[in-house]
Design a protein around this nucleic acid. Sequence first.
DNA 1: TAAACAGTTGAACGGTTGCTCAACTGTTTG
DNA 2: CAAACAGTTGAGCAACCGTTCAACTGTTTA
Lengths: 124, 124
Amino acid sequence: MKENEKDLAMQCGCEHEHPETVREVREAMPDENVTADLSDFFKVFGDSSRMRILFALDRRELCVCDLSAALSMTKSAVSHQLRFLRTNHLVASRRSGKNIFYRLADDHVRDIIEIAVEHLSEEE
Amino acid sequence: MKENEKDLAMQCGCEHEHPETVREVREAMPDENVTADLSDFFKVFGDSSRMRILFALDRRELCVCDLSAALSMTKSAVSHQLRFLRTNHLVASRRSGKNIFYRLADDHVRDIIEIAVEHLSEEE
DNA sequence: TAAACAGTTGAACGGTTGCTCAACTGTTTG
DNA sequence: CAAACAGTTGAGCAACCGTTCAACTGTTTA
């Protein structure tokens, strides 16, 4: 067993895995920043309150107050989630008098949800 | 103000939102089960360890030991995450002797990640 | 059949997260 | 300018989640 193969083996406290395979997969792995950014992005969709907000905004532009009424959430809770969504560039806003209207920021949201619906409908 | 409009207004402790809008959005909202299933699905992608596992398996079928070596995680941690992924039908497995090999279950994984990468690359 | 290895599982812990509450900013209206 | 309304924010709390650890199952091999 070569030195670098032994190193790889050390990683899991497991002595008999397949070193060639491990090295190949390791080298093909994207940078940790990339996978972290990706999972952070999906985290945004991974909450049912945010998902419901996205569905509502998919229908039409809405102010915080109407959103909170439509979803039966407090304005505060909605606002917290909207900030999250805004930070992740999924929604955009404009002020109109006392109201701030939110809308979906781009079409990726619709695309991604569409594929997810497809996947779920195929699950048995 | 009609009775049902007052009801909607009560929902957010806010008296002056736009009742027509609120009702329209409410009626168009998918069932709570649907949004819950969707967010549960995305939750699976919302963790960097699972994301890295998916990238590794996208490259090739792998046993738990090799996965854990390639990602520098304990076998236990990998196994817990694989169970999560299996429950959500994102990976499938086969036993071969002492090893259990995992692979991606279908192509939706690749599609979804592709769109996410696209979205992230457009963010400024 | 006993030892060695691959993988799974459940409990426990520490960190994260989503909500509530209360205080705040900013805009409009009297 | 003061009151009323729309929305934001930060602290605090409870629930959730990912890891570790140790004990376990199941397969192969000597």
